[in-house]
Nucleic acid binder design. Structure first.
Length: 632
DNA sequence: GTAGGGTTAG
């Protein structure tokens, strides 16, 4: 190795000397030597040649130099070329100026790139587009848009490159109003059917939560490729429209769409949402069969899919097998452990992580919420202090929310109030909601009343808040207040998202809504539910009527409770799975107290393990005991 | 010479 290196350096020295010699021979112009050095990647020597040539350097030499700098992403060398141009009073033509600018942009020197652009006496569409692209690829969307507008003001019309680029800076609700204007420009310039512009356009709509518009653009495109298809599938998945994403994927796959690792990563996001383990495993084996190279993004998606489907072991297996991990890989694994209530394992993994790379804000969210779900209060507070004091990462709203949850869970109600008072943020509805839940569990009616009032000021439309407050009053025997709260609830609340539970059996997703009568096996499910109700009541189950939002008599309340979607799904799972298998049910909202209790009795009486995933965490119920320790 | 889709948290 050493020998080879010294040989190489000898050769290059010899070459340098020969080029000096060649300078004296006018029939072998030095610039051809400079160009061949560039072609061979020997940038340093080429720069030496450039210095020797002085003001003799011509366009084609500068072009070669910049090309090689671009190849090597060599910022310093590029700067030397730039300085040389200035000193030689060489005014680069548009083409060369643009490429110099691109070099700066690709090397993350946006300011230098912008200076080049501003200093150019003449610019064409490529110059503008390249600079806009530099901004948008580095997330400087405001700058990208501002430059785009300035370009339009000069009277220049965008081409398909400009449009595809600028649309990526219009994502999110903030950029949407610009995105819409760009769309009309797309129509005006007749690029509506262009595949790149179309993909950007549909992605812009999807990211602004306008999935119907995105779908319209997709359906109108005369041709599609892997990017277009992935963009629309991922659009559905990112909005939580998982069934739609899966359905569209299946349709396009049957039609012969091309897939790559990004398509699979996006599809896995949808499958995670659906807890569709069978499909997820199918995608996993498909990626293995296709011998897709190692892609961190895909592996990250697999970790997420397996842990959201309740298969932590598989998630961990993927994580452990990765030759290279990003902060997202670690975060995905930490979130998985945390949602399963495995606080100790979260802390252990967090420790290993810090030995390898720097955690980010999401890491701390995962660790704090992992401590919260795992009941590790003091450890969680230590993590928050660590974040405050040692990481140079400022805790954000979500981190403060985790601490509120952490303290509330431990019953340190007064401490939560102090914590909220000292926060650099206004408390959110989620924080008050979390504290209200804590007041109910720890039977603190006085603070509960105060908290509920704050909450109802911010969120008067959320029926759940009234219910918890009335529960607190009921527990304290304040019946008049119970009536008063129920009355005001009727006036102000709006329908919340309806509860929905589902389970996957034989690659079919069986979905249940509250009081669902639509399932083909509804009679059998009703009969089974009645039967198991008798059995678990004998074992001590008492329906918790306080979970019913409506003001009806007790008999009707019990009927309503029995109609909760998770009870239907659990019953169906009991009928449809083999005796040894775990019953896995997913719910879109948080599981209610009564259903949680119901599930525990079912697990005890029928000797079955249940894994319930709600919007917050997993409840692993074995032998009548839940991993959440009855606090969630 | 300039262009589109992606994984974690809430």
């Amino acid at each position: 190795m050493l020998v080879r290196r010294s040989l190489r350096s000898l050769c290059s020295k010899a070459n340098g000397l020969s080029s000096l010699a060649r300078q004296t021979k006018p029939q072998h112009p030095a610039d051809s030597n400079l160009k061949s050095l560039c072609l061979n990647g020997r940038l340093k020597e080429a720069l030496f040649e450039m210095a020797v040539l002085g003001t003799e350097v011509k366009f084609s030499c500068y072009d070669s130099l910049i090309t090689e700098c671009l190849n090597q992403r060599a910022l310093r060398e590029g700067q030397r070329v730039h300085v040389h141009m200035i000193k030689s009073r060489y005014l680069p033509p548009v083409y060369l100026g643009t490429r110099l600018m691109i070099l700066y942009a690709k090397c993350d020197s946006l300011e230098d790139a912008r200076n080049v652009l501003d200093g150019m006496p003449e610019r064409n569409i490529v110059s503008w587009t390249a600079m806009i692209s530099g901004y948008s690829q580095r997330g400087c969307h405001a700058e990208a848009l501002e430059l785009f507008i300035r370009m339009l003001q000069t009277g220049l019309l965008p081409n398909e490159f400009t449009l595809a680029t600028v649309l990526t800076s219009c994502s999110g609700p903030h950029g949407f109003k610009h995105g819409r204007q760009v769309h009309s420009l797309v129509v005006k310039t007749n690029f509506e059917s262009h595949i790149f512009v179309g993909s950007s356009l549909l992605d812009m709509y999807a990211k602004a939560d306008k999935i119907h518009e995105a779908r319209t653009v997709f359906d109108m495109l005369p041709e599609r490729d892997v990017v277009t298809c992935t963009a629309i599938i991922s659009g559905y998945a990112q909005l939580g429209l998982d069934e739609e994403a899966l359905e569209l994927f299946r349709k396009l796959y049957e039609e012969g769409m091309e897939c790559n690792y990004i398509t699979f990563a996006s599809l896995l996001t949808a499958l995670s949402g659906l807890s569709a383990l069978d499909y997820g495993r199918q995608v996993h084996s498909l990626t293995i069969r296709r011998e897709l190279p190692f892609y961190v993004v895909l592996q990250n998606s697999l970790i997420n899919m397996y842990s959201k489907c309740g298969c932590l072991i598989y998630a961990r297996r993927v994580f452990d097998s990765m030759p290279e991990r990003t902060v997202i890989s670690w975060n995905a694994m930490l979130v998985g452990l945390g949602k399963h209530g495995l606080g100790r394992q979260v802390l252990q993994l967090f420790k290993s992580m810090r030995e390898e790379l720097k955690p980010d804000g999401v890491t701390f969210m995962a660790v704090l919420s992992g401590c919260s779900h795992g009941g590790l209060v003091d450890e969680g507070l230590d993590v928050f202090d660590y974040m405050l004091n040692e990481q140079g990462l400022k805790p954000e709203l979500g981190h403060y929310g985790c601490v509120v949850d952490l303290l509330g869970r431990a019953g340190r109600i007064e401490k939560v109030l102090d914590f909220i008072k000292d926060m650099p943020f206004e408390p959110t509805a989620a924080m008050w909601g979390s504290l209200l839940g804590a007041c109910r569990v720890h039977a603190n009616a006085s603070v509960g009343e105060f908290v509920a009032q704050r909450l109802l000021e911010i969120e008067p439309e959320n029926a759940g808040n009234y219910v918890i407050l009335s529960n607190i009053y009921a527990a304290a025997g304040r019946w008049e207040d119970v009536v008063r709260v129920r009355e005001s609830m009727k006036e102000k609340t709006v329908m919340k998202e309806p509860g929905r539970s589902w389970l996957n059996l034989d690659r079919i997703i069986h979905t249940f809504h509250s009081s669902d009568r639509s399932h083909p096996q509804k009679e059998a499910i009703d009969a089974k539910l009645k039967e198991l109700c008798v059995k678990i009541k004998e074992a001590g189950y008492v329906p918790d009527l306080s979970c019913v939002l409506h003001d009806v008599d007790d008999e009707q309340k019990e009927r309503m409770l029995l109609g909760h979607s998770e009870k239907l799904a659990i019953t169906f799972g009991l009928m449809g799975t083999s005796r040894s298998g775990m019953i896995r049910v997913t719910k879109n909202l948080r599981i209610c107290v009564d259903c949680h209790n119901f599930a525990k009795f079912v697990s005890k009486v029928y000797g079955r393990d249940l894994s319930l995933r709600d919007s917050n965490r997993f409840h692993l119920i074995v032998g009548g005991v839940c991993s959440c320790r009855d606090y969630w």
